[in-house]
Design a protein around this nucleic acid. Sequence first.
DNA 1: CGGTTCATTGATTCGCGTCAATGCAGGTGG
DNA 2: CCACCTGCATTGACGCGAATCAATGAACCG
Lengths: 250, 250
Amino acid sequence: MPELRKASVRSFSPCEACTVRHLSICDALDARELDRLNAIVTQNRIAPHQMIFNEDDPAAHLFNVIEGSVKIYKLLSDGRRQITGFLFPGDFLGIALHDRYTYSAEAVTAVRLCRFPRAKFEGLLREFPKLENRLLQTASNELAAAQDQMVLLGRKSATERVASFIVTLAARARQRRQPDKIVALPMSRADIGDYLGLTIETVSRTFTRLRKSGAIALPDNGHVEIVRRDKLEALAGIEDTEPRPAVRAL
Amino acid sequence: MPELRKASVRSFSPCEACTVRHLSICDALDARELDRLNAIVTQNRIAPHQMIFNEDDPAAHLFNVIEGSVKIYKLLSDGRRQITGFLFPGDFLGIALHDRYTYSAEAVTAVRLCRFPRAKFEGLLREFPKLENRLLQTASNELAAAQDQMVLLGRKSATERVASFIVTLAARARQRRQPDKIVALPMSRADIGDYLGLTIETVSRTFTRLRKSGAIALPDNGHVEIVRRDKLEALAGIEDTEPRPAVRAL
DNA sequence: CGGTTCATTGATTCGCGTCAATGCAGGTGG
DNA sequence: CCACCTGCATTGACGCGAATCAATGAACCG
């Protein structure tokens, strides 16, 4: 297990001031319930490229991303890697309720996390059906996103994959009230390749082609500017443009 | 919406006699609660290749597969298809709690289903936290399976994909107490291709190669015999051999 | 028995991977 | 401040694995 630097002071009510609560599962709880969550949470900071947990580690904690970006991935025995998701502020990490993590999680940038001991968190789940329901909604959304990703990996061309990736990142940035015209690309080309089932070189060439076609611009390696959204969406195959429709409250 | 042939008689307690209850979400309920489920369920029979629902249809029902095989898939506008899963007896269908189905579902073979009106089912979820928790466990398992499939689609060769597919099918057959040495392949080569991100021809050639290598035999188009499991697992990349480890009960 | 559907097999093409070279920014130490 | 290194991205030349195109075979069915 990596060493997790703990926040110097355990705040009495970090949730009160939480800037991403409206995006996260915590939003399902009222003030009293939030206090209970507060009582079991620890805030952590993780440096870029540091592991948060490894596949097959005992699943001791669940997390909420407060700040920064996280990648989750699986490895094959010969080192091939598939990144199965990127997480951003508000995203829940560790939803798979297995005894061991079924994937690895690593900080892409500097990251701030809320960390919940699993046993205690599951106690709260039992106590607050609202929270469990919210988690089910979240899992349901992730399942739908996973299916979209299967379409991408199984049936889309390199150009379609990269265009879809940019469009999806922009939609998620928009949800977080972050710029969706000049979109942050905190991850490396290698990460993008391992997420899209491509090599670094193909990702790079595809970015270049999209740039030359006028659909995007590349102000620097950490950003894409969407110059012609219509063109980009057409290249992407037009389907996952919008943030997923709201789940019906139960 | 397709016409669903209703069972001629609405049985008073089909769940009592259900042969797949131990595999399904219904297993989370006691006799009294099962009665409540009984009260909202309809049994349906679906003919091979008939639609169960279409992507973007209002999500009016949830289902449990009792008998037969189902495929779920998404289409791109130009007709490319990605099958995101096959369902077998005991599997729950429609877990994504969105207002509309996010994928299509079609009977592969003759199928028997338990059908639950969504609103009423969600009422029971609120009433029986055990059921909701079981659904969360199921969603969690599906999420893990989806991530395995992403690894397959993003990073595995054609041989590895087909070998993994056979090994996974065998493991699931075993869980249902069905033959796992001569494994049923109810779906067409086209379906297998659309599940594995390959063409029919590549699937066919790969089966032939696996047969010539001695790892499998092909008694007929509806079955694969696993002749040398070790060899097949080695070709698959050895990781999803076992049925997924049990989720911890909450 | 002809017609239809599906699987297999072969020949060829092509998109992406592989290998290799170059560019470029950031960091370090003299 | 600059020389050097290191890691990452870009670009080009080439090869390979799977797709495409095409023909044949096998099973089923009216």
